[in-house]
Design a protein around this nucleic acid. Structure first.
Lengths: 333, 333
DNA sequence: GTGAAAGCGCTAACAC
DNA sequence: GTGTTAGCGCTTTCAC
């Protein structure tokens, strides 16, 4: 690898001058600057970012911790961060937490060892205290999809309650009264928030969720399928179904089909997330759009701003809203 | 941040000793080692990897360049690399190339600036010469899903020809004779290889692809949908359809449904990749499994080995094979 | 406008 | 067994 010294030697200048030229710093003679530039090109010199990091105490690096990159939702999240990173000339360090407390912590530590300026964390397993402590130690830490009041300024999250309310109202407006809910077993608050939103919307319309109409499952296709089987076997009556996410909604549809029911003629189904998969299934899934890419992009910018402790950033909340995407899985009754 | 000097001072030893303790190096007295360890814990000391990288000339970092992380296929690829990285205590640097030549090059350069030991590159746009040059400069460079004979040792790829052959033979064995092909407009060789495989399989069975039975589209759902519309409007007769990938297969199914055709009763459909989405659609898609996660894992290990130029690694090829995953989209005729 | 030199945090000879 | 020291590649004051 060619170093700054090599360039300096060949160009007959000091390393300081080369450094100035590299950074378009002031106070270098035109002739000299041109000569150094030429040498840089010829030798193909590129500064060693590790050395820069050491002296600048900043790596221009943004770290991301999500459970599993192969899941569409998290891949999209990473993409949003990457875009923001690229715009500000930051690099992206990734780490999967694999839905495990310890690897979540390991992932964060490894990012810290690398002196990431900013870290975007999608945490499901660490408790609030751990995260608050972490936020104190890491100025550039931002939580995505999680809200902790004490560090509200570091949380970029979605209004799950109103999103679920909106989905429910949509179903109610279509004439549905008997709703079923497929919710998820999860560490974080999202399932509970969404369930609350559903109940609130029902209450506003003087309706209640019938007993046994809420079933739990793992947050994937199998979970949704299983949950609906349970609903059906218990003989619960429903004309519309709200699923925790698109994956569960699709699993639910499979179970419905297998039971000889049609979507949306017999049962309307509504999902959550608006993954690519929602356009792949048949009927195409009506769902709540989760603007995860925009949120991640926003979170990355916030994290970068926060990491620069000299800048003061407004102490505000960062709450995103969801919109309904109407497709073919909901019918009027 | 607490540095090695802080630890040394508090423990009353030299930095060399601390370093030895950190790395479990030999020749430190038991009492001394215990004391230093205690101080490390108390102070929460963690070595600065940037400083380490500078002196060791190795960053323990593996870089990945793929077109777009939000696509399931590439997320899965990244996951495979991450797993291998974690196993060997490497960090993961990610960069999207966004299907653009220039950002592909930028991404690689940025990874090089960071002195990544190993780089996994899914390149579609750079030409062979560029990649061969790159491979010469970067010992730890491995290409995934691309085969360049001159640097066969650095290529981890799938046997597209035999995979397509297998898919075709499967259809033929089910009694289909009139096949249609939805292929993709792509920079790399995969579509061509798969088409060759299809033709070879047909030839073996004394069959040929009828004129107009091969249509092109972009490698996504819309592309597949569009392609089948074209097929239908041209009045091409076919009882089975091979799609370039799962996304196109699903788009194709949508077009088929919209034309009032049933899958698999009227038309059998077979995909390629075996993404999660293949289990989401209805009927569930029969497809060729692309072991991208295993391949990526393998590629990462290969890249790490290659990056250590002191080790000699066998000069061999790295060709993976595909298997058929039978689901519900193909029927006997 | 340019150079000399100190130092970022760490490792690895080499002393003792 | 432990300390001293040079140096990795770079930036940044401070001279001149």
């Amino acid at each position: 690898m060619v170093t700054i010294k090599d360039v300096a030697k060949v160009a007959g200048v000091s390393t300081a001058t080369v450094s100035r030229v590299v950074h378009n710093g002031g106070h270098v003679g035109d002739a000299c600057r041109a000569r150094v530039k030429k040498v840089i090109d010829e030798l193909g010199y590129r500064p060693n970012t590790n050395a820069q990091a050491l002296v600048k105490k900043s790596t221009n690096t943004i770290g991301v911790v999500t459970p599993k990159l192969s899941m569409s939702f998290f891949g999209t999240l990473a993409c949003g961060v990457e875009k923001a990173a690229k715009e500000q000339n930051y690099k992206l360090l990734m780490s999967n937490s694999l839905y495990e407390t310890q690897s979540e912590i390991d992932a964060i530590n490894s990012l810290r060892d690398h002196h990431c300026d900013a870290i975007i964390l999608h945490s499901e397993y660490s408790d609030e205290k751990t995260l608050i402590d972490l936020a104190e130690k890491i100025p550039g830490l931002v939580l995505i999809n999680r809200y902790i009041p004490k560090i509200a300024n570091r949380c970029v999250w979605l209004d799950n309650v109103s999103a679920a309310k909106q989905a429910t109202q949509y179903l109610l407006d279509k004439g549905h009264k008997d709703l079923a809910v497929v919710t998820s077993i999860y560490q974080n608050n999202d399932p509970a928030s969404r369930l609350n939103g559903i109940k609130e919307a029902m209450a506003i319309n003087d309706l209640t969720l019938s007993k046994g109409a809420v079933v739990e499952g793992t947050a994937n296709m199998e979970g949704g399928e299983q949950a609906v089987k349970e609903l059906l076997s218990k003989g619960i009556k429903f004309t519309a179904l709200l699923a925790y996410n698109d994956l569960m909604a699709i699993g639910a549809m499979h179970a419905l089909f297998d039971a000889g029911l049609r979507v949306p003629q017999d049962v309307s189904v509504i999902g959550f997330d608006n993954l690519a998969i929602a356009r792949a299934c048949r009927p195409k899934l009506t769902t709540m759009h989760y603007p995860v890419e925009e949120m991640a992009h926003y979170a990355a910018e916030l994290a970068i701003n926060l990491s620069d402790t000299s800048k003061s950033v407004a102490n505000r909340t960062h709450l995103f809203l969801s919109d309904i995407v109407e497709r073919d899985s909901v019918a009027e009754i």
